[in-house]
Design a protein around this nucleic acid. Structure first.
Lengths: 347, 347
DNA sequence: CTTAGCACTCTTGCAATTAGAGTGCTAAGT
DNA sequence: ACTTAGCACTCTAATTGCAAGAGTGCTAAG
């Protein structure tokens, strides 16, 4: 990315990107000529085109067609040329308002966030639930369902609630479960995960408290699952939007994208990168790593409370995307979600 | 549907359906002629074609092409002609095994059910979480998050767990919350919903127990939401499968379907019907009611414990669908889910 | 360095043609 | 009265050719 572009080349690249984004067609030299402010002829533009094509910022779909930006071209545009246009304040307020309308519920928020993001971006929206980096025990409750089954409810320090069924090897009454829970809640009240783990090992050695040992075991398992970010819920919306883009008229391409969007593991791979980087992350054309989305771009942003609980949200759309509008939109929704989480998890 | 078809007409219709399902192309008279057992010429078949077309079981995509079954044709096939071929026992066992592999967790089961259904049917799988017809209180827990916020966890008789954040108008400590919960749990232990509702009205009149009144209020709200089936979670999988069908090469059609599959409300409308009927329900070509899926079929089945908690699952695919295989598949997965729920909710 | 001019390339759209599939009808056969 | 061979007819799908147009690359002159 050491290529130095002249002022004019930058301008031309910018024009080509903007024009191509809005028309979806290759951009010819005289179109640029008419749009650009410096008075030069289309022949000059053509010379510059030749250079930009040689250096990999543009391509031609076929010999002697207009030019189309490459992934490298878009990248340059996003990093150097683009100017972001914030969401209009009225829309910002509308969004914030919608979140405050609904109840204080993470699940609802996630769905709304996906819907809002899909709406403002016109692309497919993705959002992964926030996840704690390190989890601490807060509360456990065991509820007897039948003689041999119970429902365990676990609340962690980050306010996440987890539930799991348990099968008991002997009949156990609610009273015994309640007693056990009181004990555990008191005992583990503000204990570190490591301490808890040590405790578990200790308990396992003592055969008399079989039930307790098992419950503790389960608690640890759930915490592990919660922390490894393998299983977090991914919310999607506006999937149909991407099928609107002309680059997906051939159903094959469209199916490929839908398959990626459906496969949690594929998305997690991208999310992982974005969660580490801070700020908005733009993946253009799969960046060589994800061939299935070679003509898509993904705009992601982490959100949440760093160190406490963080998630990832963003959009996936055609590479030919209005970055200048979409990036601020993603950033804004991320900030709204962060604010909400701050309220939810307490200060 | 009073049309009487002769033995031979039925046979021909069956052949056309089966052939069209496997080739996706209009079926000509001599193809049928070669496939049918009774020795008649293609001219005779053509005469029968004319009748079947007139009575609305078949159509021609254009004058002088082969015949294609109409929705009515498929309907007749499904109800009278089709013979179901059960899933091979090996596959049945494999499926059951998969469910027993994973932990005793409804959410996991739903995801797996969707995946399995998508896999065996080769279409898009849909599954709505089971929902209680009438809900009874079982347990409530309030956990202090910060001075002014608390997390309410509500467990109903059907083992469903609900959570909601609460904002307090005055600082409240965990002790007070715990005390309140104990009281409520004892008081409402096995109380009917109606009694609870009456209680709430009574409480509202007494100003001194503001917190308690609000908690009870929230509990009732959650139960309402849980029972109205407006909000239950819908799991999807194998969405990309339907884009494989040749009827969706024109992206427009494909987008329409994806839009329907994405919109919860659209699916709920269909689910509602299937939940009432028992056994497997087949909706062919939208049945005049849902134009967006005019060339799709939906196969649905209720599952769960009637009177206790029931859900709906099924698949959506092109109208040209191997009903004889798909219907048993849906039925089988529904039965597996019912068995699992029986275990989960206790006998 | 810029630009006018021009030949060249490639797509796109349109029309005409052909081959083939499959029908519908008629008239003859059983 | 049902069946069937025969045949004209219709419509699609694939191929071809052609003309228009867009846009380029190159060259030579400003």
């Amino acid at each position: 990315m050491v290529d130095q572009l002249s002022e004019r080349q930058r301008d031309i690249l910018g024009i080509v990107v903007r024009e191509h984004v809005s028309t979806a067609k290759p951009v010819g030299s005289d179109v640029v000529c008419q749009l650009c402010s410096f008075g030069v002829s289309s022949a000059t533009i053509r010379n510059e085109f030749a250079y930009l094509t040689e250096t990999g910022f543009l391509t031609q779909p076929y010999t002697s067609a207009g030019r189309v930006p490459t992934a490298k071209g878009y990248r340059y545009f996003v990093e150097q040329l683009m100017e972001e246009s914030e969401l209009p304040v009225s829309e910002q307020l509308l969004i914030r308002h919608q979140f405050h309308q609904i109840s204080l519920d993470l699940d609802q928020w996630m769905k709304l966030a996906a819907a809002v993001l899909a709406h403002v971006s016109g692309s497919a929206a993705l959002i992964a639930a926030p996840q704690a980096q390190r989890a601490r025990f807060r509360h456990v409750q065991l509820i007897s369902i039948s003689e041999h089954t119970g429902l365990m409810i676990l609340v962690l320090q980050d306010s996440s609630v987890h539930q799991q069924m348990m099968l008991f090897s002997r009949p156990i009454a609610q009273e015994e479960l309640t007693r056990l829970c009181s004990k555990l809640n008191e005992q583990f009240g503000n204990v570190d995960l490591e301490t808890l783990r040590a405790q578990a090992r200790f308990d396992a050695a003592e055969p008399q408290a079989k039930l307790e040992a098992e419950v503790v075991q389960r608690i640890l398992e759930l915490i592990d699952v919660h922390t490894t970010m393998k299983t977090r819920e991914i919310y999607r919306d506006g999937l149909a939007h991407v099928l609107r883009a002309p680059e997906f008229v051939e159903i094959e391409r469209a199916r490929e994208i839908v398959e990626v969007l459906e496969r949690d593991s594929a998305l997690e791979a991208m999310f992982r990168e974005a969660q580490i980087a801070n700020g908005v992350q733009v993946i253009i054309g799969g960046e060589g790593k994800w061939d299935e989305i070679r003509d898509c771009s993904v705009i992601l942003s982490g959100y949440g409370l760093p160190g406490e609980a963080t998630g990832v949200l963003g959009v996936l759309g055609p590479m030919r995307m209005p970055y200048g509008r979409t990036i601020p939109a993603v950033r804004y929704v991320a900030s709204v979600m962060s604010d909400l989480l701050l309220r939810l998890y307490g200060e």
